[in-house]
Amino acid sequence: MTAPSARQWKVAGLALLLLFACALPFLVSSYRTFQLTSALSYAIALLGLNILTGWNGQISLGHGAFYAIGAYVAAILMDRWDVPYWATIPAAGLVCLGAGFLFGLPALRLEGLYLALATFALALATPQLLKSKHLEQWTGGVQGIVIMKPDPPFGLPLDQDQWLYFFALAVALAMFWLARNLLAGRIGRALVAIREHPTAAEAMGIDIAFYKSATFGVSAMFTGIAGALGAIVIQFVAPDSFTLFLSITLLVGIVVGGLASLSGAVWGALFIQFIPNVADQISKAAPWAIYGLFLIACMYLMPTGVAGLVRATAARLARSPRRP
């Protein structure tokens, strides 16, 4: 009998992980289930930001804005037009795809630092825009919008939190599958080529302008879908949830999780979901101090993030001789 190949190991591992993920909501409290659901939505957002920043090298300090757009699209559709919650997800995705593509057009002309600057400005301006009285009739102004938590369909024997968890898990799986297929092949290589050697990429016939703005759009779409999911989970949207610090949280997530890594999005999401809860007990300011320290420490010590660390550890274990 031949030893299982690396690929087979990987498939088996993923299947086990999925099984574990499905069992989780039955093992933990409903508050923990709610937290995990929210982590799933973060994971999708991180995936989106990582496609843009990790793979394509375009720095965004303003992805909280797209998260906010996604959340508000979902909330407004449900609140004003009674659209069912599941239908708001693709709607939020489409709106953000368009918004991201549009923002990506001027951003095309900006490199590194200046794109970071423009998106930084976007992040700071977002809450103000949401509070604007011109939009108040839809956004509810400073008050925001409260939405209802959906019930499980088809008389499934689940409570609301458990159902939402499975719903989010399904969306997340779909998004990861989509991202994997996008990034595994030619498109993924083009994105990395643009990041590493823009001139060479152009010489190879890659349409940089198209790829960059399309990447911005797709990235915003992922993050917008996450925002919609987040709104449904939290049942509430308000301008002050979408400050610069949300955008920074997303940045922390991809840096700690691992830049240009699919699994990094999951690690990052768990980090930004659970670390603040722990740190909050020290001081209100502590989670942010920890975020800051992690950001800087990762750049010095662990530039590949948790995902890189896990890969390196796995490789070391595989290489070391098995003990009897």
């Binding site: 300090l61 630092l113 989670p287 800051g292 950001l295």
Partner: peptide, 20 residues
């Protein structure tokens, strides 16, 4: 990217330490 991330880290640390 690394430099921008360090700047943001610094921003966050100063902000939270002041708050603390």
């Amino acid at each position: 990217l690394a430099v921008v991330i360090v700047f943001i880290g610094l921003l966050v640390i100063l902000n939270s330490v002041a708050g603390w």
